[in-house]
């Protein structure tokens, strides 16, 4: 790939190319999360979870990434349901959860190796990406404990959907090439996010939530 002189200069002046690409990806996904939250109204587990998930997916590939996500969530649910009956402290419980998770992931790798399940070549997957996805477990449990199972599943789904969207955007070669060669976009992203930060209009979700008010014919302005 040929770079513009500015980008070329950066790379030769000690900015690792991979780090540069990753940082750009972080900015792009962060902006997607901010749009999703304030314009659409979909909640995620903070902003870090979808970013790390999108980047992890870009390393594992979406198919493998989603499969690992599924295993992580199912194991978390299982371990939480079992541990619920045991009286123990919260952090200890999470620690047990992570141990179970590690075991399950190992089992999963073996099962995939043996039976395929349409997920061949899993052995090449980056370990860091796998544990990044495993971190979802903590977010999921926290939401489950503090709110409800339903709300946690809701937020999990929107986190995964947004991460998948982020994955889609950052893995397009055209996109990453354009961004890395047009770094002036970075301040533009800042301005754009400041604009989103000022947005006071209704979110798309609000429109659905308050639909009944606008449909109520006998509701006179009073």
């Amino acid at each position: 790939m040929t770079y513009t002189p500015f980008t070329q200069w950066m790379i030769t002046t000690g900015v690792p190319q991979q780090v540069l690409e990753l940082l750009l990806a972080v900015m792009i996904v962060a902006t997607i999360v901010s749009i999703a939250r304030y314009v659409i109204g979909s909640k995620t587990y903070g902003i870090y979870a979808p970013i790390i998930l999108a980047i992890a997916y870009s390393y594992t590939g979406l198919k493998y990434g989603l499969a690992i996500t599924l295993i992580v969530i199912l194991t978390t649910l299982l371990s939480y349901t079992i541990l619920r009956k045991v009286r123990m402290h919260y952090i200890a419980r999470i620690a047990v959860n992570y141990c179970l998770l590690a075991i399950m992931l190992v089992v999963f790798f073996i099962v995939v190796e043996r039976f395929g399940l349409g997920l061949e070549n899993m052995t090449n997957i980056s370990g860091l990406a796998v544990i990044s996805i495993a971190a979802l477990s903590d977010f999921f449990i926290k939401q489950y404990v503090k709110k409800s199972f339903k709300s946690s599943v809701m937020i999990l789904s929107s986190t995964v959907i947004i991460a998948a969207l982020g994955w889609f955007v950052i893995t397009r070669d055209a996109v990453s090439e354009y961004f890395i060669n047009n770094l002036w976009i970075v301040p533009l992203l800042i301005v754009f996010n400041i604009f989103i930060g000022q947005f006071a209009g209704l979110r798309v979700k609000d429109l659905f939530r308050f639909k009944s008010i606008s449909q109520n014919k006998d509701n006179v302005q009073k």
């Binding site: 109204g41 006071a200 209009g201 209704l202 609000d206 008010i213 606008s214 509701n219």
Partner: peptide, 12 residues
């Protein structure tokens, strides 16, 4: 639309 204008959303 007009009725929706009376509604307060989370952002606002």
């Amino acid at each position: 639309r007009s009725r929706m204008n009376e509604v307060l959303g989370l952002n606002r």
